[in-house]
Simulated assay, not measured.
Amino acid sequence: MDLFILCCAGFAAGVLNAVAGGGTFLSFPALIAVGVPPVAANATATLAALPGYMSSAWGFRHDMQAEGSLPLRAIALIATVGGLAGAFLLIVTPGATFLWIVPWLLLGATLLFALGPALLGRMQARGGASAGVAVSAAAILVVSVYGGYFNGGLGIMLLATFSLIGYSNIHSMNGLKTVLSSLLSLVSSAAFIVAGLIAWEQALPLAVSAMIGGYIGARVSRRITRTDLLRHFVTAVGAITALVFFLR
């Protein structure tokens, strides 16, 4: 039953991360449900999301192009530094403290996920004006620290950040989102492995199923016209998960 839960959650999380985001709202509680402690569950969910992000990035490989004031290499470098900083913060966070923080993180990520389309639309309505280099670098750094610490809601945060720094092509934004998500998961997972936080027995089936789901999600994303229904579903899952952790 644990294997079934992990495989279903991993596949669904991979699809959602490619199409609408929010896969962590499924993978993180699934790991908790099969007995993984919260800090280790967060670290394992980050590692397990990596294959799905990478397969999605491959599916979007023809869509990526540089926009705004920062070149892609600079964005990648800043994201690496931010991801490592966020991972270090998680490693040094005591388990009891993280257990207190988790419901607030889930609630904040759920609200951001629910309000994300409106926020993104307002930013794009600014006419595609690009922020300066310093503001763009700071925005990428902040969202990367968050992504290294907690993966929930990362996709919509990245999309909003790209819009802020001058991106307007949604397919290019989705492609870069999956690449940066892959990079953040890679560097933070490396830190988590060194710190011994990965639950390997649960990580393997979750990662394999997320990889399959991520590739399929990237392939079918352009054909899906009712992503709002997926978003409502993910928002409901996030809200219920946050409520459960508040009650605990």
Rank of each mutant, 00 (worst) to 15 (best):
F4N: 05
L6E: 04
C7A: 12
A9D: 03
F11D: 06
A12C: 15
N17I: 03
A18S: 15
G21L: 10
G22R: 01
G23P: 05
T24I: 08
L26E: 08
P29Q: 09
L31D: 09
V34E: 01
V36M: 04
P37H: 01
T44G: 01
A45H: 03
A49E: 09
P51V: 01
G52F: 08
G52S: 10
S55A: 13
A57G: 06
R61M: 06
H62A: 15
D63H: 12
Q65M: 14
A66L: 04
A76S: 08
I78W: 13
A79I: 14
V81S: 08
L84P: 00
G86D: 07
L90P: 03
A96H: 11
I101C: 09
P103W: 04
L107Y: 03
F113C: 10
A118T: 08
A118Y: 05
G121F: 02
M123I: 15
Q124C: 10
G128W: 05
A129G: 09
A129E: 15
A129W: 09
S130A: 12
G132V: 02
A137K: 05
A137P: 00
S144C: 06
G152L: 04
A160D: 04
Y167Q: 03
S168N: 12
H171D: 12
S172K: 06
G175E: 11
G175P: 11
L180S: 05
L180N: 01
L184F: 08
L197P: 00
A199G: 01
E201S: 06
L204Q: 02
L204R: 00
A207V: 00
A207Q: 01
A207Y: 00
V208T: 00
I212K: 04
I212S: 09
I216P: 03
A218S: 15
R222M: 14
D228N: 11
L230A: 12
R231N: 05
F233M: 14
F233W: 13
V237W: 13
L243K: 06
V244A: 15
